[in-house]
Design a protein around this nucleic acid. Structure first.
Length: 575
RNA sequence: GCCAGCAUAGCUCAGUGGUAGAGCAGCUCAUUCGUAAUGAGCAGGUCCUCGGUUCGAAUCCGAGUGCUGGCUCCA
């Protein structure tokens, strides 16, 4: 059984699920049911609205069908025969899908039991070869993913060769739930979102803000060290600015409506670029001062449909770690390579090692000279190569204004997150008519690149919370050390220790509550504090602490100086 | 925005037409404790909002808001 590819087995499981749905609700019309990265789904249209109880029913029936070892039979048909077959069954979606199949391709159907589906295959020989199956959820899904087309009902499921593998997958889903940044965000008092303020608008609590501050400090220093300068720009700008930039033409659905200031309409910024461009335009520029690398932690507001908001990962107001690079054509290759190298350095600093690149090239409709597109894409390609990154190319997937590279990082649970984006822009330099005076004494159009490394601080924070399951590494932990006296008799000594740690810039707290040691330790553990220092009589007499670390548990007695040296080093290593 | 579901104390949840409950957290008191919960007491609620049905609504119906899982989109 294990020599059957997982994808084939899952695809077959989707057919069996459809067969079960057909037998339970004979009016069901079927769309498609492919396998996915970690399971499968099938889309249906029918009168009955599916619920969680129905999934159990369907699953039960599927198990029966699997037990009966129903053969999967392939038949090749002429287009006419296929049309007739699905027309007779009233399968209108299948007819539409059939029409999508290119003329020269063979049309095939697969039958298993009563159920016959338009399908290219391949499939397992019989349903007995489908391993452990589990239906997971039901959701709405537009036909062809188009919101103007009818909404279908989709059932998600998964299948594995063995019960053990299935269970491991279900356990992984559970683990992901435990790490959910929305749950940990409340538990650890990192941030909150309020109905009274508005959906998708984030309040950072003291602990979350402390982490953000540390991230920002690191980020700024890294940028200064790598040849960037910082900018601060306003949160709003006149409508004229957004007309010039083209945002009101191409991005208005992402922008909030204008506010009136002295009779002029102003818009809250969805992007920082027009402001950076005006800084560039504030005086004539020489080739001698290029490249300009200007960064800003710029807070932007974008309209997102209500249904897509999700904790910190998808919000309406967020701070981009934005930068714009304006340079000459001769510099572009080095600049791109440098941006990518810098990005990789930042990701490694935060403990992310597995990174994939996605290159998007010129679409049909595009602005900018074709030679510039070529050079831009070439420089992106070379940079990816130089970093030895695995890269997928999305031909024609770029924006109309320029090609881009996106990076996706893999977290501790193996999930991919889109973060970094490095994007050429051939549109705004034209629209704002920016230039530099070249060696030849005449005006030239510079290249402009937008880039965000972490993406947005909000999303990055959400990713970090889940990556570390709330147990931040020492350098990021809002509370690094907590001192716990074993009884009130040792409060004074605990205070001395805490004061000494604080003096050494260690973020330290004291737990002087009249609780048992066990109770205090439990509290400290639950708050994911990296180090707990337990102090009592023995420690007071020897000027030491008893250490308990988040990572290793009980570590025994230690001189305070040794502990300090250890954590100083750990902070430095950002481990 | 669309489909489906959910909304009860700060948190996790019970309560299905008849006076609103538990655990944890909080506060008070007692305990002075050696590595993941010391004990007792107290306090805490427009049962999301508005409207309707009913003698009576947390519970049934409608609308709205927010959230969850998806679709579309994306930092």
């Amino acid at each position: 059984m294990s020599d059957i590819p997982l994808a084939t087995m899952r695809h077959s499981a989707a057919h069996i699920m459809a067969a079960a749905v057909q037998s339970l609700w004979p009016d069901a019309k079927f769309d498609i049911g492919p396998d996915t990265e970690d399971g499968f789904y099938y889309d249906f249209d029918m009168e009955h609205r599916l619920n969680q109880e129905d999934l159990k029913k369907i699953e039960k029936l599927m198990l029966k069908m699997i037990g009966r070892k129903l053969p999967f039979e392939r038949h090749e048909l002429s287009r006419k025969e296929a049309e007739q077959l699905f027309a007779e069954k009233g399968q209108s979606y299948k007819l539409l899908r059939l029409a999508d199949i290119p003329e020269n391709e063979i049309v095939s159907v697969y039958s298993s039991g009563e159920f016959t589906d338009l399908c290219r295959g391949p499939h397992v020989q019989h349903s007995g070869q489908i391993g452990a199956v589990k239906l997971l959820s039901v959701a709405g899904s537009y036909f062809r993913g188009d919101e103007n087309l009818p909404m279908l009902q989709r059932i998600y499921g998964t299948a594995f060769h063995t019960k053990e593998e299935l269970q491991a997958h279900l356990d992984a889903i559970e683990e992901a739930k435990k790490r959910d940044h929305r749950k940990l965000g409340t538990e650890l008092e990192l941030y909150s979102i309020h109905e009274e303020i508005g959906p998708g608008l984030v309040c950072w609590h003291p602990k979350g803000a402390r982490i953000r501050h540390i991230i920002e400090n690191f980020w700024r220093q890294a940028h200064y060290d790598n040849g960037y300068e910082m900018l601060y720009t306003p949160h709003v700008g006149k409508s004229k600015l957004w007309e010039t930039s083209g945002h009101l033409d191409f991005y208005s659905e992402g922008m909030y409506s204008a506010m009136d200031i002295d009779g002029d309409p102003y818009y809250v910024k969805p992007m920082n670029c027009p402001f950076h461009i005006l800084v560039y335009k504030s005086r004539p520029r020489s080739y001698r001062e290029l490249p300009c690398r200007w960064a800003e932690l710029g807070t932007v507001y974008r309209y997102e449909k209500a249904g897509v908001l999700h904790g910190l990962l998808r919000v309406r107001g967020f701070t981009q770690d934005d930068a714009h690079i304006i340079c000459t054509p001769e510099q572009i290759e080095d600049e791109i390579q440098e941006v990518l190298r810098f990005s990789m350095y930042v990701w490694k600093s935060f403990g992310f090692k597995e990174i994939k690149a996605y290159l998007a090239t010129r679409p049909e409709k595009a602005v900018g000279e074709p030679e510039r597109w070529e050079q831009a894409i070439e420089s992106l390609r070379k940079a990816v190569q130089a970093e030895g990154l695995h890269c997928e190319v999305d031909e024609g997937g770029g924006a109309f204004y320029g090609p881009k590279i996106d990076l996706k990082i893999k977290d501790a649970l193996g999930r991919e997150w889109q973060t970094t984006t490095i994007q050429f822009d051939f549109n705004e330099p034209e629209r704002f008519d920016i230039s530099y005076i070249g060696k030849d004494g005449v005006k030239h159009r510079p290249y402009m690149v937008h880039r965000a490394l972490l993406g947005s601080l909000e999303r990055f924070f959400g990713i970090l919370i889940e990556h570390y399951a709330g147990a931040f590494p020492l350098w990021l932990a809002p509370e690094q050390v907590r001192v716990l006296p074993v009884s009130e008799k040792f409060n004074d000594y605990a205070q001395t220790i805490a004061a000494e740690l604080k003096e050494k810039q260690i973020r330290t707290s004291l737990d002087l509550a009249p609780d048992t040691v066990g109770g205090k330790i439990r509290r400290g553990r639950n708050q994911r504090i990296p180090y707990l220092c337990i102090v009592g009589e023995k420690e007071e007499q020897s000027g030491s602490i008893a250490l308990r670390s988040q990572k290793k548990g009980e570590e025994g007695m230690m001189q305070l100086d040794d502990f300090l040296a250890r954590i100083k080093q750990e902070i430095e290593e950002m481990a």
